[in-house]
Design a protein around this nucleic acid. Structure first.
Length: 285
DNA sequence: CGGTGAATCCGTCAGTATCA
DNA sequence: TGATACTGACGGATTCACCG
């Protein structure tokens, strides 16, 4: 478990601040097999499984993943945490470097402490029940932009022509179905005689301000509305960043898991081979 | 060196989930 | 039930390798 121990020694508080670290971070009172670290994640397993298998990928300076095959549950450990194995029969099988496979035999009446985890594997879909399955069945409808493209932009043209010339402050609070051009708040789009200003509101709907090409034309944009929109966009921008970061992390975790499984497979093949040889030897004797 | 296609990143929209 | 967070989809911008 070198990778775990040397990873960091900071007091991370079991990573409770990390959204991915939702694993039960209770410090365990039983004697750990791994010591000299400050943050501990205890992983216990369901009692139904007579023998559960836990796979873990521990890499320095990265978040780690533990996955159990028995109940198909995945747990993500914030970096710097360790797995606390509470049974003396635990086996830590290190195949190479930082990749480790951990096999433990669970205590009766133990629980899976990884509630609320982002289920980072399709294999755990069963845990989520019909809700998730239902969600997976749903397909997103095409975006309005795509619809617009399919329609050849006819609607927008129609919409523009529908505005009264010289009607300076016509703000049509459109439904979400309006084909508001996607331009930054306050940006102007000019097209022939009409200008269009997208001032989508804070909700999912949007507003389109249209005004004549007259240079003196004025348009009315509620300040509060634009402020709200900017705030929403800012938050969404950051959320998108975070989402992509998590996605990348998840993919990395999957790749790590592949590596673990490959190593495990290799080790099992070797073990089988040696056992066969042993068996043949004993048979000939 | 310019054109091009693939890959990647980023911002935005929109639908869903979750929480107070 | 409304507000907020999350995330898939989409499109634009940028980068990079490759080719003529």
């Amino acid at each position: 478990m070198d990778g775990m121990v040397e990873e960091n020694g900071s007091s991370g508080g079991a990573g409770s601040a990390d959204p991915l670290a939702g694993a039960g971070s209770a410090a365990a009172s039983s004697t750990p097999h791994v010591v000299a670290v400050t943050s501990i994640v205890q992983l216990t397993l369901p009692s139904q499984a007579p023998s559960a298998q836990v796979q873990s990928v521990i890499q320095p300076n990265q978040q780690s993943v533990i996955q159990t095959a028995s109940n198909i549950q995945s747990v993500q450990l914030p970096k710097g945490n360790v797995i606390l194995v509470s049974k003396p029969s635990s086996v830590i099988h290190t195949t190479q470097g930082t990749l480790q496979t951990l096999q433990i035999k669970p205590e009766p009446n133990t629980l899976v402490s990884s509630q609320g985890q982002s289920c980072s594997d399709e294999s755990c879909s069963d845990d989520e029940g019909p809700k998730r399955k239902y969600r997976e069945m749903l397909t997103r409808r095409p975006s309005y932009r795509k619809i617009l493209n399919d329609l050849g932009g006819a609607e927008i043209a129609e919409n523009r022509m529908g505005t009264k010339p010289g009607c300076e402050n016509e703000v049509s609070l459109s439904s979400p179905l309006s084909f508001a051009p996607v331009i930054p708040a306050g940006a102007l789009q000019t097209d022939g005689g009409l200008h269009t200003l997208a001032v989508s509101g804070a909700g999912s709907g949007g507003a389109i301000v249209q005004y004549a090409t007259n240079q003196d034309a004025q348009f009315y944009v509620p300040e509060d509305q634009t402020r709200k929109r900017e705030l929403r966009l800012l938050k969404n921008r950051e959320a998108a960043r975070e989402c992509r970061r998590k996605k990348k992390e998840y993919i990395k975790c999957l790749e790590n898991r592949v590596a673990v499984l490959e190593n495990q497979n290799k080790a099992l093949i070797e073990e089988l081979k040696s056992l066969k040889e042993l068996y043949c030897q004993q048979k000939t004797e």
